[in-house]
Design a protein around this nucleic acid. Sequence first.
DNA 1: AAGGGGTGCAACCGCTGCGGG
DNA 2: TCCCGCAGCGGTTGCACCCCT
Length: 486
Amino acid sequence: MVEREMSYTMVTDESDDAMYSSIYNESPSAADNIGSGCTSRGKGSVLKKGPWTSTEDGILIDYVKRHGEGNWNTVQKHTSLARCGKSCRLRWANHLRPNLKKGAFSKEEEQLIVEMHARMGNKWAQMAEHLPGRTDNEIKNYWNTRIKRRQRAGLPLYPPGTHVEDLHWSQQYHPSTSNVTDRRRHQDILQLGNSKANVLFDDLTFANVLFEDLNFATSLLPVASDISDMFSCNMLGTGASSYMSPILPSHSNIRQAFQSPEHFQNAAPQKNPRSCSISDHPLYGNQHRTDVMIQDSHHTFTDGMVPTSKPLFGAVKLELPSFQYSETSGFDQWTTPSTPQSDLLDSVDTYIQSPPPLEIDEPDCFSSCDTGLLDMLLHEAKIKASAKHSFSSTTCITNGTQNVPRGGETHIVTSGAGEIKSSSLIFEAFAVVKTEEMDEVWEPKRADVIRPDVLLESSWQDQQSRFGIVRDSSSLSDALSLLLGG
DNA sequence: AAGGGGTGCAACCGCTGCGGG
DNA sequence: TCCCGCAGCGGTTGCACCCCT
């Protein structure tokens, strides 16, 4: 650690030992940084603030060795340290305690953080529990940095393939946190919901979430299978997934169609082996969310509740069927969590290192996949930038054929709207919007228009016409009917 | 070489939950 | 039941370093 000598403390206790004196001789020039947040107790001294010195670290380490962790407010009594308990605890937890892992996050850790944030929101402490050697502060800083980077790069918060979790995570595993999250949601709004661009990114991410849900539904809904695969294939394959249109068919319709868990109880549960998400891990298995996460300012509306730090997208509850309620159904094999943390960690590599094979036209895409996650994300932005030029029209996907393999499967999306299967019809419509989105993604006006809460006030067809997209509405309706089991 | 902005990290601040008296 | 103190969490801030011009 870089020691920054900047703080100085007035000391009145005459019994201070030599070490104590040495501490405050280290920085004789900075007498203005006197603690105000932590009040002194016992010694009548004013607590020091600012960076810790190695001497202070030594004192604190020695104290913990003797007395163990906890009782941080007694540190000042038992040692010469003029730090408040909070400061001591923070210093120990973030820097001094053993087994701390320093240095940059590994690719696996980054991936795990992204996945966990998608599920937990800003639950840094909970995330840290799953990242041995990492502190909540580290993870928080990493995430904030990541947000900035992605905002600058014009990327959504979550990369494609990230399952965004609903409230069940915190409720099921950390029930005590749900109240806290609700109280703090306004802070999250302030933190993440201010910028127009951020709203747009989250809006775009919304599409990813839905499609991932559809992907999950693959194993349950034969009809949805093709759709989800197509979405996933193209989203992952083009590297422009975040620009998959947030303009979706009325989600309320989907919700109505899927509102009952019993709707799927007869469907054979089948783990999707192609997923490279930790969502498939037993620990997260029951978190296979099907409630659509509406993203905006990291808030989520789920079952009428608004947990903090969760993606949301406005005051509209939009759901796909939730299989998490199916504890009595045939999904028990998923809903029974494998709680051991090691279990999760042991399998992280499996998920990270087993991405679905992608055949992407972008020539340098694979190289990016070998770098760190952040680099990969930046690369994603690069691809998008180039895609702006290459995707001049809908023909890139819908004209002719395009093979988009994913997990060994190949889907052929044709431009013909009449005879192809219904799922392709839906995708075709999305593909149109997607390419349009690429060209206009940065326009705030567009961001307003594509907000789902706006969309829900008008029909899917209205949106099409608004954007000048003329499609075969009857075919689309047929496709939706099939998708929704109608 | 200099300086100005960006970036990342360490630490602080405010709030809340919890337990004990 | 209320109050108080402690521990912990999440948001914010300050600053050193880095990079670009």
